[in-house]
Design a protein around this nucleic acid. Structure first.
Lengths: 208, 208
DNA sequence: AGGAAAATAGGATTTTTTTCTTATTTACCA
DNA sequence: TGGTAAATAAGAAAAAAATCCTATTTTCCT
């Protein structure tokens, strides 16, 4: 059960960050200055009082912070957990379901340092070995968004029906063919038939 | 003002994701099955009803999702806004305050696609040109955490007192000297006196 | 197709949060 | 140091959300 105390602490921290007292921030947001009094956070019979989502929305409107940023602060800076698997296993059958979401047993849940990325369909792959250095080094994590639109020059992971998966830079997609080149910039273009490809996902972030 | 509708939509999506109806999820969480009825989201006089933080905490306890993940979903996948400046300007005097936080007039606020990362002191730099290719390409965004501890092999931005700033891989820090090498792997090591260095920040994520 | 269970609509009641009000304490400034 | 404004404590009243209850609709299964 979420600790209501964490929300109150986050309100205090938000006020402090923007140079207000809790009372001052409430006032600025059009709420009553006594709204966030410490004396009112636990009721007389010991039950916790939970600040309403409406009150929180109003104070966030003053500061420009988003709800997710606010609750990330309240969560104590816990990073987003994403499904994670080694890149070498990303081409295996059944690894993604029909909607392009992780499926099957191979996936772990990873908490990524400092990455609170959204996108319900994002997942992460872990680089093993030095094949993609210096761009991606051993143990680097890449975050993919399967729903992101693809353009020339995008860095992608291409998973083949054969089970093989690899990173590449997208050159072109047309006429049932996909042309790629290595992300390191060395080496020539490769052209694949789309029916050899299981899925393609765009890489949006890489850990360092 | 935050749209209360976004929260209701997120509740519906949460329920669907975990295979419940809104009513079923409420029941599972120990709430009344009518709690989230669509018919009760706007009152008879047209005022929006905001679900309480306590109710949300209870349904999240069922699903294991965090508050920040939930509200990230409610935000519609809006990325975190971070202070952003061109890397070439990152070495200018006054660009960071005594706490290592962005200061002065040069910073913009940037919304980073798919990046909701926490860390109140993180900021972003934008790569211009091709000096760091293929690792970082023109327009790539790198996210720095000044408070992150540094280890051998870390990718960093080093800002000199001279005003120059550049990316590098950390080789060693000892005896008042810092040894670096280029992130692309070509080129030899450089050793700097620490008193020539204004600040060093570790790169934690790079956009693709 | 029919029946049962689940889901949803809608009204009344209860509980909880916010607002209003008063009092006290704290912080700031001349 | 004294005075004023802001912040906080605490009680009463009003407003809002949750729960309880009944009815209707939808979904699922045989």
């Amino acid at each position: 059960m979420y600790a209501h105390e964490d929300i109150w602490n986050a309100i205090d921290r938000l006020a402090d960050t923007f140079g207000y007292s809790p009372s001052g921030l409430a006032k600025k947001a059009g709420l009553d200055p006594t709204s966030f009094n410490k004396s009112k956070r636990i009721s007389a019979d010991g039950k916790p009082r939970w600040p309403s989502t409406e009150s929180i929305a109003k104070i966030l409107a003053v500061t420009g912070m988003t709800m997710s940023e606010f609750f990330s602060m309240a969560d104590g800076g816990k990073g987003k957990t994403l499904p994670l698997i080694e890149i070498a296993k990303a081409g295996q059958p059944g690894i993604l379901d029909e909607k392009g979401m992780p499926a099957g047993k191979g996936w772990k849940k990873a908490e990524l340092e400092g990455f609170g990325g959204s996108g319900p369909d994002c997942f992460a792959l872990e680089i093993h070995g030095g094949d993609y250095a210096p761009v991606y080094r051993d143990s680097d994590i890449i975050v993919l968004s399967p729903s992101a639109t693809l353009r020339r020059g995008d860095r992608i992971v291409c998973a083949m029906r054969s089970g093989k998966a690899f990173t590449a830079e997208l050159v072109r997609q047309s006429g049932g063919q996909t042309t790629l080149r290595p992300i390191t910039g060395n080496g020539s273009e490769t052209t694949l038939n789309d029916n050899e490809i299981s899925w393609i996902g765009r890489i949006i972030w890489a850990s360092q």
